[in-house]
Write a protein that binds this DNA or RNA. Structure first.
Length: 1040
RNA sequence: GGACGCAUAGCUCAGUUGGUUAGAGCGUUACAUUGACAUUGUAAAGGUCCGUGGUUCGAAUCCACGUGCGUCCACCA
């Protein structure tokens, strides 16, 4: 065996191991079998590099993916990135501005700016992907996706059209959130509220208006069209319904007094000015009361012409002026300072104005045609009992709370970077299309909210929108019955037989439920007849298409037997022998062209394709055409195969196989942005939940508990941590000592601890594998090799068995931290500190040690993949740890003996610890062998394990049988009597106190009567034991 | 205004459905160390589980109220 380094050196292994993993193919589910298990990576924004939060996410996903893979699942962990529309454009614009381009949008124009953003995004993407690799994430790179690539764009366009057709996406002139700095709309969720001081003005619009109102924004009052009061308010009842023409600081206003139950009688003056154009709440009141909208603030953040003489002023300036005028006119009643939450743009940072604008919205309160439910209702139903499970559960409440407050979602943005809204205009006509419908049409200039495409992530990554195709092979024809080879020509033996007709009727009944919208058929007689039967039964239209006809068999037409084989051979040889037979390539060409067209037109829908043996075998992928062997698998006549057909005409089984996804992890800050939208889109498009389980993790903070942020300058690059401590150490430190949903602090001591642990495991392995065959340190061990298992053996096996069960349970319940804790405890304490030390004494344990080590590495692998792999291959010389078999139990110990073994071994451990303790208390030098006498009723147990006791406590021990519990005597040593006495007294005190507690408990009649019997018995047991111990210590005390 | 979370050893945090003499890691103290590992070993010290009530045979755990910190949401005019 080659030399193994004393310490594990991550740098030497990690990159090498990662590329070996990639090469192995096990990152892809295509090489795995059995039950599918899927996790979608939350795609990081291409706004920069990954931070520690991403490192945490990668660790979480990967620990789960690897665990499931080891459990034998067919795991898909799908990687990707997010174009992050506003975030990315805002970032690039900022960079450009720093370079001196004052207004990038104006100066560069759409195309040039887009090119800049794309360049930045691509660079960022590259960095991010390499960082994900560094984290050891075992994702399937062959399925890498990007929210802004072609396939995802198609998904966006398809769903946009579907929602538009269903009336769920509409265009409307409404009050929306506007970022002046970003020159774009924002959804309600993109607003960050910041607390600030504001002046709260109480005033009258004019002398002749009877109601006093209060506001922090007098300038918006120029756009007021109503005053709202509570219908129950006696002060204002008489005015409700009346309209007043008034003069407000020189501006003519027409104010209607309206009643609204939402108005708080006690707040302010109990009346408020309603500005439908500049407040979302007022807007809703406006809709209810049919109020006019007067826009006094413009998109540039300045007062509009509607604001009369204030036009052109900034909002702040107008406010100042108005207050001045009110004061002068004696209309200002009160001016007080209050704390106010002001909405700001999360990406641009400026204060968000509300103003009216024509935008695109998703209607959340409108019934979906044919489903009699609103999107909001779908979202509500999807979470909880039978739907999505959220860990920890409390986030369900937060989710529902959000849903209840949900308004229509504004999805159009005025920025350039993002999916262009697939809407075209010509005069007053509107068309939804991904490309120009023709001359004179212009596309909407807006782009979509980034969360619109993120919402599709769980299924747009799996090939959606697929066309569901039911490939039907025609029913039995004359030719089939007679064994005659039929090409694509119509011949006299081409019609369906009676049996054929029956076959078709039968399958028609079966495929009815899929709701196909169209039948495509080969025009040849046997398929035509088949298609017609189906069409009649289902009432669906047929379209004949030459591209799915049977292959041309040239001169073999009408042959049977031998000709059949010849024709097939020729088909795969590409018709080289001059028979003029169609080749596989020919078929491929026309079939793929057909399927591509199909997917363009019927994405998201189901169609029936009636065709023949060869084309169906090819199109459905049941035969291995690539190997150019004559396919053995044919669909029999009158049978059908259902397949999803993807963008490139390929068979796509991913959606079928991996949806809904099994598990998703995310931070709580993204719950509404993302989780809610994914649920919305998935329930709407697929009528399914996007994932079965969501695991919410907390936010990472720095060692002081502050958020990581650029401005605070406390950012930590995960790569720096990896460089110094290794990926495994970083991963384990992020996953241990945390509870789901709870924020966690990152500090280096924790990483060091994890690094030490990794190294410990390395050295345990090194020791076990480099041990010379049996080097017993004492006399008896040579004999033992062939003997039965010792107590220590049985103990470690029981412990290990418990570990397997416990860790498995923890993983299954997403208790990663606890699984890690258990593993650490076993590895370091039980296995290394006790068992390994015992093995040095008892000897002959090579096999047990190796067995446990191997299985232990498997248990550890999800957490610390690199070091376990390094040990597995380099030290153990084994292969493919990544798909090793997760241990179920180890080894077969009868349950009855288990408890006894653990108990007995505890006694041994106790004795050893006590002796060590005695040594320390009496300051006996470490190497010295001391003489001990143990007097105990467990004398036999100690005798059987005397070697261990003596070896681990460095003592020479004599045993004496007694009826009572265990006593230890230190012989022939000058003992520190006083100290010993104090020691014993202290112990005695403790024990007596405990005994008193037990006595009290057991003398409580109610306890004995009402507590479960097990509990009472356990307490009695403890009482008995403690009584003995007390007696014992008392005796020892005497002898000191 | 509503909701949620946190408060456990000097520090950072675990603690699944109420049944332990309340745990871990780091730190601290003492001792040890050239054969797996100083990224180590052995031993020890260290807690009124925020407070007050309640439910219960039994509460760190459930309930109510209070205190301090944090987060989210909202028609905060």
């Amino acid at each position: 065996m080659k030399e193994i380094e004393k310490a594990y050196e991550p740098k030497k292994y990690e990159d090498k191991i990662y590329s070996a993993w990639e090469k192995s193919g096990f990152f892809s589910p295509d090489k795995l079998k059995d039950e599918p298990y899927s996790i979608m990576m939350p795609p990081p924004n291409v706004t920069g590099v990954l931070h520690l939060g991403h490192a945490l996410e990668n660790s979480l996903m990967d620990v789960m993916a690897r665990y499931q893979r080891l459990r034998g699942k067919k795991v898909l962990l799908l990687p990707g990135t997010d174009h992050a529309a506003v975030a990315t454009q805002a970032k690039v614009e900022k960079l450009l501005m720093e370079k001196g381009i004052k207004n990038p949008r104006q100066e560069l124009g759409r195309e040039k700016l887009l090119a800049e953003v794309r360049k930045y995004a691509e660079g960022s993407k590259k960095t991010i992907l390499s960082q994900i690799r560094k984290m050891g994430t075992s994702c399937d790179w062959s399925r890498l996706a990007y929210t802004f690539d072609e396939d995802r764009n198609k998904a966006v366009n398809v769903i946009f059209k579907k929602m538009y057709d269903d009336g769920l996406i509409y265009r409307g002139f409404k009050a929306i959130n506007w970022s002046t700095k970003g020159q774009s709309t924002l959804s309600d969720d993109e607003i960050v509220y910041k607390e600030r001081k504001a002046k709260f003005y109480t005033f009258k619009y004019s002398k002749d208006f009877p109601i006093t109102i209060a506001t922090t924004r007098p300038e918006t009052k120029l756009g007021d069209t109503a005053v709202a009061v509570n219908p129950k308010d006696p002060r204002y009842k008489k005015y409700i319904g009346k309209t007043f023409d008034i003069d407000f600081v020189g501006q003519k206003l027409k104010l209607k007094v309206i009643a609204d139950r939402g108005v708080d009688i006690k707040l302010g003056t109990g009346a408020l000015g309603v500005t439908p154009a500049h407040s979302l709440v007022d807007y809703e009141m406006g809709v209810k009361n049919d109020l006019e909208m007067v826009q006094v603030i413009g998109e540039d953040g300045k007062m509009t012409l509607e604001a009369g003489k204030f036009a052109g002023m900034s909002v702040e300036k107008a406010r100042e002026e108005i207050v001045k005028k009110l004061k002068k006119a004696g209309l200002l009643k009160k001016e007080e300072e209050i704390d106010q939450n002001v909405g700001t743009s999360d990406r641009f940072g400026d204060i968000v104005e509300v103003l009216p604008k024509t935008q695109w919205f998703v209607a959340v309160n409108k019934k979906i045609p044919g489903r009699n439910k609103t999107l909001k209702e779908l979202m509500k139903e999807a979470v909880g009992k039978t739907g999505v499970q959220i860990t920890p559960k409390r986030f369900e409440k937060i989710y529902f709370n959000w849903i209840n407050n949900l308004r229509d979602w504004c999805i159009s943005r005025q920025i350039y970077w993002g999916h262009r809204i697939p809407v075209w205009y010509k005069d007053d006509k509107i068309k939804i299309s991904d490309k120009s419908p023709g001359k004179g049409w212009t596309q909407d200039t807006d782009t979509l909210d980034t969360w619109f495409s993120s919402g599709l992530w769980t299924f747009s990554t799996l090939g959606w929108p697929l066309t569901k195709v039911i490939f039907v092979r025609h029913g039995q024809a004359e030719g089939n019955a007679r064994g005659i080879l039929d090409g694509h020509n119509d011949t006299e033996w081409n019609g369906l037989t009676e049996k054929g007709t029956k076959q078709v009727l039968k399958i028609t009944g079966e495929i009815k439920k899929y709701g196909a919208v169209k039948i495509f058929s080969s025009p040849i007689k046997r398929t035509k007849e088949t298609a017609e039967i189906i069409a009649k039964e289902l009432g669906v239209e047929i379209e004949f298409d030459e591209r799915i006809r049977e292959i041309g068999v040239g001169k073999f037409q009408g042959e049977s037997g031998d000709g059949f084989t010849k024709a097939r051979t020729e088909f795969y040889n590409g018709g080289k022998n001059g028979y003029k037979i169609e080749s596989l390539e020919d078929l491929e060409k026309r079939a793929v062209s057909f399927l591509k067209d199909l997917n363009k037109e019927y994405a998201g829908k189901t169609v029936i394709v009636v065709s023949h043996g060869d084309p169906i075998a090819y199109m459905s992928g049941i035969a291995e055409f690539s190997k150019k062997k004559i396919p053995g698998d044919y669909p029999p006549t009158g049978s059908y195969i259902i397949r999803g057909i993807g963008n490139n005409g390929e068979v796509n089984e991913d959606l079928e196989e991996f949806y809904p996804t099994n598990w998703m992890q995310m931070g709580h800050e993204i719950l509404f942005f993302w989780m809610a939208r994914m649920i919305l889109m998935s329930e709407y498009a697929l009528k399914e939940i996007p994932f079965k389980d969501v695991y919410i993790h907390g936010m990472l903070r720095d060692e002081k508990g502050n958020k990581f942020s650029k401005s605070a300058g406390n950012n930590i690059d995960p790569l720096d941590v990896i460089k110094e401590y290794g990926t495994d150490a970083l991963r384990f430190s992020l996953l241990s000592g945390v509870a789901p949903g709870q924020d966690q602090r990152f500090y280096y001591e924790k990483v060091t601890g994890a690094r030490n642990l990794v190294n410990k495991l390395w050295n345990i392995s090194r020791y076990i594998m480099t041990q010379k065959q049996s080097s017993p340190s004492s006399r008896a061990s040579a004999k033992r090799e062939s003997r039965d298992l010792t107590l220590a053996d049985r103990w470690i096996m029981s412990k290990f068995n418990n570990l397997i069960v416990g860790v498995t349970e923890d993983f299954d319940n997403f208790r990663f931290s606890q699984a890690g804790e258990k593993l650490r405890e076993f590895t370091w304490n039980d296995f290394a500190d006790w068992y390994l030390e015992i093995s040095k004494i008892e000897g002959g344990k090579e096999k047990i040690l190796k067995d446990i080590l191997e299985k232990l590495l498997i248990l550890w692998h999800p957490f610390i993949p690199f070091v376990t792999e390094a040990i597995w291959t380099d030290i153990l010389g084994k292969k493919d740890l990544i798909v090793a078999e997760w241990p179920s139990s180890f080894p077969p110990l009868s349950k009855g003996r288990l408890g006894g073994v653990l108990n007995d071994f505890e006694k041994i451990k106790n004795i050893i610890t006590k002796i060590r303790n005695l040594r320390a208390e009496n300051k006996i030098e470490a190497g010295k062998i001391i003489n001990i006498e143990i007097i105990s009723k467990d004398e036999k147990l100690f005798k059987d394990n005397l070697e261990i006791i003596e070896g681990l406590s460095k003592s020479k021990t004599t045993l004496k049988k007694s009826a009572s519990a265990t006593r230890i005597k230190l012989l022939a040593e000058k003992q520190d009597k006083e100290k010993n006495k104090i020691c014993f007294q202290k112990e005695l005190e403790e024990k007596e106190k405990y005994l008193a507690v037990l006595n009290k408990k057991l003398s409580n009649k109610e306890f004995v009567a009402k507590a479960p019997k097990q509990v009472v018995d356990a307490e009695k047991e403890k009482q008995k034991k403690t009584e003995e111990e007390v007696k014992n210590i008392k005796e020892q005390l005497k002898s000191v």
